[in-house]
Amino acid sequence: MNKTPLLEIEDLHARVCDKEIIKGFSLTINEGEVHAIMGPNGAGKSTLSYVLCGKPGYEVTAGSIRFRGKNLLSMSPEERAREGVFLCMQYPVEIPGVPTATFLKHAVNAIRQHHCLPELDTMEFLKMVREEGKKLGIDAEMIKRPVNVGFSGGEKKRLETLQMSILKPALSILDEADSGLDIDALKIVAEGVNALRDGRRSMLVITHYQRLLNYIIPDFVHVFAEGHIVKSGDKNLALELEEKGYAEFVREK
């Protein structure tokens, strides 16, 4: 079967506040694949996710990132999102005063507009949110509240998953999606993520622990240490790491 590359990262170098964090990182994700990136704290996992989304302050000094063959680095954060890059954030941002429903509707319609689809009216939008929300245990009350304000850790992650379900990105990047979740919440989030696996959509799961990968089973596992990939394998690599830890990949300091 011919594989179509979705994301191609080549020899990426990036820095934050003059400190080089990503040093020669390369990875290709094809359509339909789920890749997990595991690594010790401070390896630059979150930096990688922000670089992919174009967060200001994260400066790429060398290398390239192509998304469906287009130069991702020349796009604004919103253009990347409209093209199909989605970051499920470790610490979703609170936005006082902006109702969750308003925020979601603007996001959905911005993306639909980009793909030349008619905007959803309020009725159509609410119907979709209700249906998708139900699967994640998100009720109508929750989406009336301001974005993430006063949400518990679990609620925040469920809202991230809801956004993923309704925006249907080609590439979902999950940054420590399991942090702060109890096992029930984790299962709900994982089900939401797995529901998007249709053989075409791809995922990049960034995690410190193997636990999440029991629920979102990756096709490939990469060990990320000191700014680049030091080892790649299949899902069994995650189990191996769980047992042995990251010690062999980290230089003594």
């Binding site: 989304c53 174009g54 967060k55 200001p56 604004s76 954060p77 919103e78 990347r80 999102a81 409209r82 989605f86 970051l87 954030m89 979703p92 941002v93 609170e94 936005i95 925020f103 603007h106 996001a107 911005a110 993306i111 980009h114 974005v147 956004q163 925006l167």
Partner: peptide, 12 residues
């Protein structure tokens, strides 16, 4: 907050 919204496709 701006980046969060942009990362969901909402124009700046």
């Amino acid at each position: 907050q701006l980046f969060y919204m942009q990362s969901r496709g909402i124009g700046r």
